[in-house]
Nucleic acid binder design. Structure first.
Lengths: 138, 138
DNA sequence: GCAATAGTTTACGTTAACGTAAACGTAAAG
DNA sequence: CTTTACGTTTACGTTAACGTAAACTATTGC
């Protein structure tokens, strides 16, 4: 349908548009809604997604890439809102943020070490490759 | 049993020792063996783990922290061995290593962005906290 | 001798995160 | 008008990664 060739970004998306964009199924998107991670509006019965909802979806998928469960992603997304709470709630939020950071730091360390090991493995494989070629075509 | 207070590192571990060290259950360790990720020796019927097996377990758990499936962790662990194959196998291995690297790079980007967003959320929460305190104890 | 401790195998149960299919509504295109 | 494309709800199925429990063996300490 090519849209209206408008200059502004579309302020709403269909479920299949989002599914295509992020290479997931509509089932997945509805599942996230079921789990309370998305709350699209409805035009009649049909779901309509705002840019904000689209961002939430992106956050969920980024969480997935980092190995987060949907519950963890929900927690993280909840950190973005005004945190309209009292002192205790805010303090808990701050602590929670700290924990997530530690988690990410650990992941950073893990990635660093794994990266190093991959380099070593690559080097070994290349050495083996050269040898292997010498043997196969003398 | 305190071991023999020897100077050298123990060259073998029991299943419960490893479970305690890594804070997992013996069931989990046996499960990894079932899936072909570990192959401990046996003294009679009892499993005996070498330091090498212990390292493999560590690699599995690091993979878990990065959100890898056991199959993915197995693939990565397999990259460590001599890759005693022919040219084709080695080339596939090299490509495979490249893919894993890209994966890790994506994770790095994801972590970076999330870290940044956590900082913002933290700042907002601290601001809200100060305000909240002013209101509660005027 | 016997209870406690650590090990084993076998097998059924559970949870998360969807997949798959049925059965239906609706709107545009030919 | 009916096919096609897209949407909906409802519900059962599936896979990974273990948990849990039963039933058994072997060793150790008292």
């Amino acid at each position: 349908m090519k849209a209206k060739a408008s200059i502004v970004e579309p302020h709403s998306y269909s479920i299949s548009e989002l599914a295509r964009e992020f290479d997931i199924t509509t089932r997945t998107i509805r599942f996230y809604e079921d789990k309370g991670l998305l709350k699209p509006e409805r035009r009649g019965q049909t779901r309509v997604y705002s840019p904000e909802e689209r961002v939430r979806l992106k956050l969920i998928l980024r969480g997935k890439r980092l190995g987060f469960s949907l519950d963890e992603s929900r927690e993280i997304i909840d950190m973005y809102d005004p945190a309209h709470g009292n002192v205790e709630q805010l303090q808990r939020l701050l602590e929670h943020i700290g924990q997530k950071r530690e988690h990410l730091c650990q992941q950073l360390r893990d990635i660093e070490s794994l990266m190093g090991e991959l380099e070593e493995a690559e080097a070994r494989a290349q050495v083996a490759l050269v040898r292997s070629r010498k043997n196969e075509s003398p």
